[in-house]
Simulated scan of single mutants.
Amino acid sequence: MADRPGEGGGPDEPPAPPPPRPLDAIDQDILRMLQADGRASIRSVAERVHVSRANAYARINRLVEDGVIRGFGARVDHERAGHGTSAYITLKIVQNSWRTVRAELRKLPGASHIALVGGDFDVLLLVHTPDNRALRELVLSRLQAIPEVLSTRTLLVFETEDLEPQG
């Protein structure tokens, strides 16, 4: 975390983005379109939100520069990609060890989401593995070997549904 507003939190963290600007209806429409189809052309975005190509291009660049759009990528069906077992793993960690634990969790194969949370546990981790044996190995050999991890609880995922707009 930063010591002062606008500063990064250290060597592992980028500088803080500028304060958010309000998004108008056109910006919101552009975001919805790109969430549904990140490969949409500038021309098609411009046509659908009724602005010029130059305006659409400038708006998308501003959304990227402001950190509203963090990147463009593919939505993966993990089961079809050979990672048919998914689990949420909760972790209790040593106080003030978040940065150290986060750095270790980023190295785990199949880790796809890491969150520092409040409540009965400290960290929520989503992982995708080829099978239950690989999940067991990840939890027992990799996660529990991190010195700052005090305990884990594994919640096996039976089914998921992506609530983001679909392309």
Rank of each mutant, 00 (worst) to 15 (best):
G73S: 06
G9I: 02
G82D: 02
A58Y: 11
L143I: 07
I26E: 14
T152L: 08
D3M: 13
L143F: 08
R32S: 11
G82M: 01
I60Q: 06
D77N: 13
E137H: 15
R106C: 04
A54I: 07
R99I: 11
S112M: 09
A115G: 08
G73M: 03
F158V: 12
S112N: 08
R153P: 02
Q95F: 12
G118R: 01
P14Y: 10
G82I: 01
G167D: 03
P130V: 02
T152C: 06
V64L: 13
P22V: 08
A87Y: 01
V149H: 01
R48W: 02
A58N: 13
T152W: 05
P14N: 09
D27R: 07
D37H: 06
L135D: 06
R53S: 08
H128Y: 10
E159V: 14
R70C: 04
L124Q: 02
I89A: 05
H50Q: 12
P165F: 02
N55T: 15
L63F: 08
I42G: 09
E47F: 07
K107N: 04
A25S: 15
W98Y: 14
P165R: 03
H113N: 14
L143P: 07
D120C: 10
D120T: 14
R48E: 05
R32L: 11
G84L: 02
R43G: 10
D3R: 13
F158D: 13
R4I: 12
I114M: 04
D120N: 15
V127W: 08
L124S: 05
L156C: 02
Q35S: 09
A103C: 00
V64D: 05
P165S: 03
R53I: 09
E148G: 04
G67C: 09
V94G: 03
H128P: 04
E148M: 03
A103S: 11
S112H: 08
R59F: 06
D12R: 14
V123K: 00
L23H: 06
T90R: 05
I69V: 10
Q95C: 10
L23G: 03
H128T: 08
G84V: 02
R80E: 10
R136G: 13
S44C: 05
V139I: 07
T152H: 04
T100A: 10
S97W: 03
R48Q: 13
D131W: 01
L140T: 14
I26A: 15
R70L: 14
E65L: 12
A2Y: 07
R43I: 12
Y57M: 11
L105S: 00
V68E: 08
R99E: 13
F72H: 05
R153E: 15
